[in-house]
């Protein structure tokens, strides 16, 4: 049968759910071992953070889409958590191979890392359900939005929900794509569009941590860099 937007969306949703069916709502044995190998075991903080962010997410999803859809928000959050654990494990395996270390205590106790990774997983889930549209309000990229309630929860909505700096979200995108080779072409394209939006606009808004980093880089680098203006 000919491919229609509805059929394509249904296929993507089925594929995502299928990929995550074997992934539990808890860290796998392998991921739990990475947690245990840390100087400071992050397990409790990870669980607590997911509880807090889960409540915030469901509440805000209900506000955006409608109070009757709170259950849908919870289902999407559950899928997002599964993807978060799956990708985290793959990232750590890849880092273990690259760095030959098994103790990722600093990274796994970094709240911003976890929030960014979870936000990226949820963005993938939301984009799979809602299609690759972007929130209205001046963004020229994306598939033109549409007028369904789904557009209210499209990027960069998740950044606002988790009070996450776009610059921190940006950091996980590439590693996320590398760590999950099962992501569809459309989802990769969606994440790439998020990346472009951040790079071109969102990261440059007032209050972005990027300005402080640039300042530090400029101050710290001035003595080291002796390149001429021409180079």
């Amino acid at each position: 049968p000919p491919q229609t937007p509805i059929r394509a969306a249904m296929t993507s949703i089925q594929q995502l759910r299928g990929d995550l069916i074997s992934t539990g709502d808890q860290p796998s044995t392998n991921l739990a071992t990475y947690f245990k190998n840390c100087t400071v075991d992050p397990t409790q903080d990870v669980v607590k953070r997911l509880e807090t962010l889960g409540q915030t997410f469901s509440q805000r999803f209900g506000q955006a889409v409608g109070p009757r859809c709170v259950i849908l928000g919870k289902q999407r959050f559950t899928l997002g958590v599964r993807l978060y654990y799956k990708v985290m494990e793959a990232m750590l395996e890849s880092e273990e191979k690259r760095l030959s270390v098994q103790n990722f205590s600093k990274l796994l106790n970094d709240s911003t890392f976890h929030t960014s990774l979870l936000a990226c997983a949820l963005e993938v889930v939301m984009a799979t359900y809602g299609g690759s549209s972007f929130k209205a309000g001046g963004y020229s990229h994306g598939g033109g939005g549409g007028d369904t309630a789904e557009t209210d929860v499209c990027f960069p909505w998740i950044l606002d929900v988790f009070s996450l700096a776009a610059f921190d979200f940006y950091k996980v995108i590439e590693s996320f794509i590398k760590a999950d080779p099962t992501l569809s072409k459309d989802i990769v394209k969606h994440l790439e569009t998020c990346e472009n939006l951040i790079m071109e606009r969102i990261a440059w808004r007032t209050g972005s941590p990027l300005f402080e980093l640039l300042k530090q880089e400029h101050e710290g680098g001035a003595a080291e860099q002796v390149e001429t203006p021409a180079s």
């Binding site: 690259r98 590439e174 590693s175």
Partner: peptide, 21 residues
């Protein structure tokens, strides 16, 4: 597969991006 351009070098990963190698 997809056309995503990977910009990170082989010696860079998520640990460096969050300043904890």
């Amino acid at each position: 597969s997809h056309d995503y351009h990977f910009g990170l070098e082989d010696h860079e990963g998520i640990s460096e991006l969050f300043d904890c190698d």
